[in-house]
Simulated scan of single mutants.
Amino acid sequence: MDKTLQEVQRRLIALGYNLGPAGADGYPGRFTTAAVTQFQKDKGLAIQFPGTIGPKTLAALSGSENVKPVELPWIAEARKLLGLHEVKDAKKLDKALRLDTSEIAWCGAFVGMCVATALPSEPMIANQLGSRNWLKFGHTIGSPQIGAVAVFWRGGKDGWQGHVGFVVGHDKTHLHILGGNQSDKVSVARVAKDRLLGYRWPTSYPLPTGTLAMTTINASITTNEA
C-alpha cells in the first residue's frame, strides 16, 4: 500500500470524486486514474500524461478547500461489509446486522448499523427496517453528496415500499448507492434518480458543502431491492 496515494485518494473522495468500491485503499486502479484525471481537468492543470500524480497535482490537492483527512466514518463502516451476500455469507452478515437477512428487506438495517456504529451519539429513527422511515432521519439536504442517506420509492411512488442506501457518486441519470439488499448483498449499484424521495444527513456531523462532480461507474442498475 502506498500511503501517499492513499492520502491523495482520501482528498479526492472528500472533494466529491468517485474512487469506486475500494475507496482510499492506497492501491492504484482505474477509478483512481479517472478521478485524478478529472481533478486535473477541473483545476485546469497542464499535465503531459493525465492521470499521473506529480508535483502540480499534489500541490493542487494540498491547496484544495474543504478537504477532510479521512473517509466519512459511516461509509468506512459500510465498506467493511461490501460484497457480503445474504445466502453465501449469511452467518457473518446476520451477525453484523443482528437479524435474519433471508427473511426481510434489510437495506434499512444496514444503513442503521453503519450510522449507529460510526456515530454513537446520532439520534436514530424508530423502525429502521421501513426504508421510507429514513426520510425522518437527520437533516434534509437538497443535492447528492458523498455519504448522504438516499431514500427511494420501490414498486410505486405513492406506495409504502422503498429502498435506502448511501450516496457514493452519481451520473446524469443514476445515483451510485452503497447499500444492502442490492442483488441480495452489500454492493455499489446504480439507482435511477427519478426514484429518489430525498437525501438525509446526520445531525451530529458537519453538513457537506460544494457540488458533487458526476462520474462514471461500472456497476449494475438495480430496479427492485426486495
Rank of each mutant, 00 (worst) to 15 (best):
F152S: 09
I104P: 00
H174N: 14
P55K: 10
I53E: 09
I53A: 10
F110Y: 14
L212N: 02
P144M: 11
Q48D: 13
R79F: 04
Y205T: 03
V36N: 03
G83K: 08
W134T: 00
I104V: 15
N224T: 01
A59E: 14
K92S: 12
Q38C: 03
W201N: 11
V167E: 07
K41D: 08
G156W: 15
L84C: 04
T203S: 15
Q128W: 04
G156M: 12
W201P: 05
D25I: 01
L212Q: 13
H139N: 14
K157W: 12
K88Q: 12
P206E: 14
P50F: 07
I221T: 10
Y17L: 11
A150V: 11
L12E: 06
K95R: 11
H176G: 02
T101E: 13
A105D: 15
A14K: 01
V151G: 09
K41P: 00
A126W: 11
F166H: 08
K92Q: 14
G210P: 03
W74S: 02
I177A: 01
V115W: 06
T209H: 03
F49T: 12
L97S: 03
A118H: 06
E77Q: 15
H85D: 15
G179S: 05
F49R: 08
L58C: 05
Q48N: 10
V70P: 00
D2E: 07
D158M: 06
K80Q: 14
A116P: 03
W106N: 09
E122M: 06
S187W: 04
S64F: 04
H170N: 14
L58W: 01
A213L: 09
P123A: 05
G138R: 04
D158F: 13
H176Y: 13
F152A: 10
S143P: 00
Y205G: 04
Y205F: 12
A35N: 04
D89S: 08
S62F: 03
R30N: 11
A24V: 02
L45V: 04
N66D: 15
A105E: 15
P21D: 09
T140Y: 02
L212R: 03
G147T: 08
A192V: 07
L178M: 11
A126Q: 12
T101A: 11
T203Q: 15
W106K: 05
K41Q: 12
V70S: 08
D171K: 01
D158E: 15
I75E: 03
Y205W: 15
M1D: 12
L207D: 08
R190S: 11
P55H: 04
T101N: 10
